[in-house]
């Protein structure tokens, strides 16, 4: 039997500051449940957060918790992981945090294959700062800085991470909660860099600007917009632009940074 996930939760810190209908809490809960299923001891787990609404997740857990500066989470955890290879590190980074200011560190953490699980709650905009567009905001979306539609194209963070060398990459949505948990577990059990992007609602900004209705309606909207990866690949480019894919993009087993470092330097781990 697995542990009760609430052992990881700082219950006295609740209620949380997220808006009603925000997806961040659901993703955090799923992360904690998957940790419980993997029976990770409380003191061997670290939640490393970026800056943003999603970054506040660290305030509601009582496992080791780290929150650095905006966008730099993966650089910090590269140091933490090399100092402490036995820690299970979960990173929680918003789409702005990870795909704009932090994109360089994502590419290099994936290339180095740092053994961490990166979770990206993608709410399609910058929540904390008032709903501006991020690199992952779909083209033409209305946001507080694109009142007549976002002129720039968006990008596929998952494909970028895969190309950069990540061992495991998947995307799912807030609607697919069972799948989300499964992905988190697969990602964590795969040693090396893993990324799971979760499409999630920000009803307060993205939903309001784009008239997507309340949180419930937004979740439906996300569900309707999302197709399995193989179906997506059969779509026309024009049709693809209107959809998100979900599924597993990569599952490899290359050695992680720590292993490679010591194999290379000494042929063995002298710290063991």
């Amino acid at each position: 039997m697995s542990i009760d996930y609430s052992v990881y939760l700082a219950k006295e810190r609740l209620p949380h500051l997220w808006c009603p209908g925000c997806g961040h809490g659901i993703i955090l809960k799923n992360m904690l449940i998957s940790m419980a299923e993997m029976e990770i001891p409380r003191e061997k787990a670290l939640l490393a957060c970026g800056i943003g609404c999603s970054g506040r997740a660290g305030d509601y857990v009582n496992i080791h918790r780290f929150q650095g500066t905006h966008g730099r989470t993966l650089a910090y955890v590269t140091g933490i992981k090399m100092a402490h290879p036995e820690l299970k590190i979960f990173c929680f980074m918003g789409d702005g945090d990870c795909s704009a200011i932090g994109i360089g560190h994502l590419i290099h953490a994936a290339r180095r294959n740092v053994d961490v699980t990166a979770i990206v709650p993608n709410n399609l905009n910058y929540g904390m700062t008032g709903g501006q567009f991020s690199p992952l905001t779909p083209g033409e979306s209305l946001t507080s800085t694109s009142r007549s539609g976002k002129a720039e194209p968006d990008m596929d963070l998952c494909r970028l991470a895969a190309e950069a060398g990540a061992n495991y990459v998947a995307r799912t949505t807030i609607y697919h909660v069972v799948e989300m948990k499964k992905r988190f577990i697969e990602a964590t059990n795969n040693k090396g860099f893993s990324l799971v992007e979760v499409i999630t609602p920000c009803p307060t900004y993205y939903g309001r600007y784009n008239q997507l209705g309340n949180a419930h309606k937004m979740i439906e909207w996300i569900k309707d917009k999302t197709v399995p990866l193989h179906k997506y690949e059969e779509m026309s480019v024009k049709n693809q632009e209107q959809h998100f894919w979900r599924g597993k993009l990569v599952e490899k087993h290359k050695p992680d940074l720590y292993t490679r470092y010591w194999q290379h330097e000494r042929g063995m781990d002298h710290r063991a």
Binding site: F66, T69, A75, G79, M82, A83, H84, L87, H105, H108
Partner: peptide
Amino acid sequence: IYLQMEDEIASIAAVIGASLGGM
């Protein structure tokens, strides 16, 4: 451990991370 990072922002970040990990 010697790490060559992608820039100085990442360098000091990794140093802080390792320090909080006890090194």
